[in-house]
Amino acid sequence: MDDRLVRDSVRRSYDTVAEEYTARLRDELDGKPLDRALLTALTEQAEPGTPVADLGCGPGHVAGWLAARGVKAVGVDLSPAMVAVGTREFPGVDFREGDLLALPAADGEFGAAVALYSVIHLGPAELGRAFAEIRRTLRPSGLLLVSFHAGSEVRHLDEWWGHAVDIDFRFLDPGHVAEVLEEAGFVVEMRMERAHYPAEAETRRAYLLARRV
């Protein structure tokens, strides 16, 4: 399947589960102390007053968490249903429908960005393109926090929470992701892995904090 058809399938799948996703995960950061600490570290280093982007934001709960702490948050998602839910649930966030490979943002618009489990739907050849596009939207020295499932497998779902979907979740090697980030014009400042929290799927989680150069 070509990349455009894959993205269409991802979009439709997230449209299908948007309401269920929100009901289940809206408050997930309450049980993720390490994620909250990383988000805080990111925003404290962003240029004061600059927007922080949540790329692949889903229903916007991370962007909403940032906005509740005084951050000018922008949520971008491929799924129009997710954008609609986010706009309803988190009115303090600027939501935009868009693709990681063609972000609806100006050059240097964001002081920092997060991409939490959103790069896992990209094909291997798309990862570098996405990081280059994210770099375009960041200010000089802007930080990017990326998280993903660590490994090498691809998990396919044709049913998700009782809904019919067609979507792949790609596990990624942290060392490879770090190399791709550096090739795209970032310096990786932090690498970390953790075990899953009790309420999460049983996967190992990886985080990379990278600075635009």
Rank of each mutant, 00 (worst) to 15 (best):
A73Y: 02
A67V: 11
F90H: 13
P33Q: 12
M82L: 06
S118A: 14
R69D: 11
E182T: 13
G70N: 02
L25Q: 12
R88S: 15
L29P: 07
F171I: 05
A206I: 05
L103M: 04
V146Y: 05
V17W: 00
Y197D: 12
V119T: 14
H163Q: 14
L55A: 12
P91E: 02
L122Y: 12
C57A: 08
S13M: 01
M1E: 15
D99H: 12
H176D: 14
V146M: 03
R24W: 07
L145W: 15
L103C: 06
D27G: 00
P48N: 02
D107H: 07
V146A: 04
R191S: 15
A150V: 10
R26E: 12
L38I: 06
R36I: 06
R7G: 03
D158M: 04
G60P: 02
G49W: 14
A210S: 11
H196M: 03
E159S: 14
A164Q: 15
A113P: 14
E202I: 07
D2N: 08
L100R: 00
L122V: 12
G92F: 08
D30I: 06
L55T: 09
V188K: 00
T50K: 07
E183L: 01
G123R: 11
F110Q: 05
L209E: 13
R12E: 15
E20D: 13
D107G: 04
L55M: 10
A113F: 08
E20G: 10
E89H: 07
A132G: 13
K32P: 12
V154M: 02
G175R: 08
R170K: 03
S9H: 10
L38P: 10
L5T: 13
D54V: 02
P48F: 08
Y117D: 09
A73R: 03
E126P: 10
G128Q: 14
E28C: 10
D99P: 03
W161R: 13
S141N: 09
F110A: 05
F110V: 08
P140V: 08
T203P: 05
V74D: 13
E200K: 10
G92Q: 10
H121G: 01
R170G: 04
C57T: 00
A201I: 03
V17Q: 05
V187D: 15
L5I: 00
W161L: 14
L143T: 09
R36P: 11
P91W: 09
G162R: 11
R194N: 01
A199M: 06
R136Y: 11
V187N: 10
E28D: 06
E20R: 13
A37M: 07
